[in-house]
Amino acid sequence: MQEDLRRALKKPMEERRWGSVLDLRKCVGCHACNIACISENKLPPGVVYRPVIEEQKGTFPNVSRRFMPKPCVQCDNPPCTPVCPVTATWKQADGIVVVDYERCIGCRYCITACPYAARTFDYGEFYTEGTPSIQPYEKVHNFEYGKRWVRTEGDSPVGNARKCHYCIHRLNRGMLPACIVTCIARAKYFGDLNDPESLVSKLAVKPNAFRLKEELGTQPKTYYLI
């Protein structure tokens, strides 16, 4: 994957199409990807980019569990972007749906428009609120979209819609997204769907690959293997 990434980064941005493949047979439900994401992006309470859905099927003794990590599926035809009244969110040339925190007015229309619940709102809360002091790790800056963001009262990203952006800041430095590298089961794959040699391109066409809510025509760039 690292080689796929390096190859893709050599191409112009508009020739890349980032996508991911998540193998549900391998996922053990450890939630490490979510923790890694929260840690990487310093996510506050209530803001979550990629929760892991746990499903239990059947009745005893015939039961099974399935774990489904759910990042922003990075639609090729995203329903969340055209609804923004101020063009604060759009699909980049490389396929990643991004939010401009400094432009977002916080109307939350995009959150209602996402069929995958991939967007959450930053209410300005802290995990250690109500304790003698808010801990420094909550006030430390993150590097989303390649900028330094410190969450202070009333300033972006507080009051904004937030979502998974495939860790653009890491990608631009030649690093895979935090959730991908943290997966203990190697259940996640990431790369350029435009590159026929990339691992994701090969996995995405497997007969056991599917995408969420295909019927909506959103064309997600996240594939699941079952």
């Binding site: 929760p51 746990e54 499903e55």
Partner: peptide
């Protein structure tokens, strides 16, 4: 999505 309500626990 089914199961989303149990995926991450937070009052929001």
């Amino acid at each position: 999505l089914r199961g989303l309500e149990e995926a991450f626990h937070d009052p929001r």
